[in-house]
Nucleic acid binder design. Structure first.
Ligand code: FES
Ligand code: FES
Lengths: 166, 166
DNA sequence: TTATATACGATAATAGATGTCGTACTTGAA
DNA sequence: TTCAAGTACGACATCTATTATCGTATATAA
């Protein structure tokens, strides 16, 4: 399953919340937790991680909390995911682990370079999306069918897609 | 972690192997397993799944095995991933589970539509990659596709990305 | 008849994600 | 000075998905 962490989603929601908040006041973990119904402990941990990676700043003590360190327009989803979850490795074969230079099967199977390139393309894709796009846009829920998104494909492929996609 | 299943990688390797094989003879699970060092049981299960979803055809009995049902040029990575792993749900918030119409937090948090749109874009991205691209290239795929996802980025962001990627 | 293969399901083992708990430190305000 | 509200941090438990293994049945070419 190709899925982001739930904490990454929590983080996105929190970032959007902070961005929309009228200036001055800091946002506490409790506030985010109460507002959206997220588990408090996880929300706190998520915000700490955002602080550790420099995306937000913390203010300790009573009346403390967190404030954005950078504009959402300057942060890409690629950077955000990497800071929340670590290096993006969409395929095991291309995971840049320092211990092993490549894939465990790279001796007999020669797809590492292709897999690594695929990974790079995913990173490029994620880097083309700004957090501000996710925070500002109001998008109709209706567009959820696969068939709606095949516009840039050759005709032959459209038929194949239609055949199997629910 | 945003990662594909290992079986999906096994499947890709197997598909490439079958595509490159001189015509006529079928490819057995044992052959793929031996060739690349994959666990046999998993390889067999992977090929069965490919057969169940119609991407390859099976020939039972001695001298049996599998052959491609369609050209790799007609199959997109989006279709392949969906057939190997089920519906793509890159964020939990946008998972189209039949039980719950939306996200468990959708009552107070209003990001479902944005998350669903993000999911749509990921699917569209995967659907823009043909398996033949992954199978044919011994050297990394040309960067021409990258620009599709970079064109709308401000210059400042490109610098940020360069700083932290790979 | 035998060897080689797919077909199928149950289950164990592992890893990762998710959620919980306890405690210490910081600071503004009563 | 005290207290309450907050961050900071780490250890741990739980849940879930992935990954791997095992056993058995069936088909078919030689
Ligand atoms: S799967 Fe990594 S080299 Fe083939
Ligand atoms: S995370 Fe699903 S609605 Fe906010």
């Amino acid at each position: 399953m190709i899925k982001l962490n739930r904490t990454t989603e929590y983080g996105l929601v929190a970032m959007k919340h902070m961005a929309k908040k009228p200036g001055g006041s800091a946002t506490s973990a409790r506030e985010v937790s109460d507002q959206f119904g997220f588990p408090f402990e996880i929300t706190a941990k998520t915000l700490q991680r955002l602080k550790d990676t420099g995306l937000i700043q913390s203010l300790q003590g009573a009346r403390g909390g967190y404030v954005l360190a950078r504009s959402l327009d300057e942060i890409t989803l690629g950077e955000f995911v990497e800071k929340m979850e670590g290096p993006v490795a969409v395929v095991n074969c291309a995971s840049g682990k320092t211990e092993s230079p490549g894939c465990e099967y790279s001796g007999r199977c020669e797809m590492t370079s292709v897999m690594t390139d695929l990974n790079r393309r995913v990173i490029q894709f994620l880097s083309g999306i700004r957090l501000s796009e996710l925070a500002n846009s109001e998008i109709p829920v209706a567009l959820t069918r696969f068939e709606d998104f095949l516009g840039n494909q050759p005709e032959s492929m459209k038929e194949n897609e239609k055949a199997h996609l629910s």
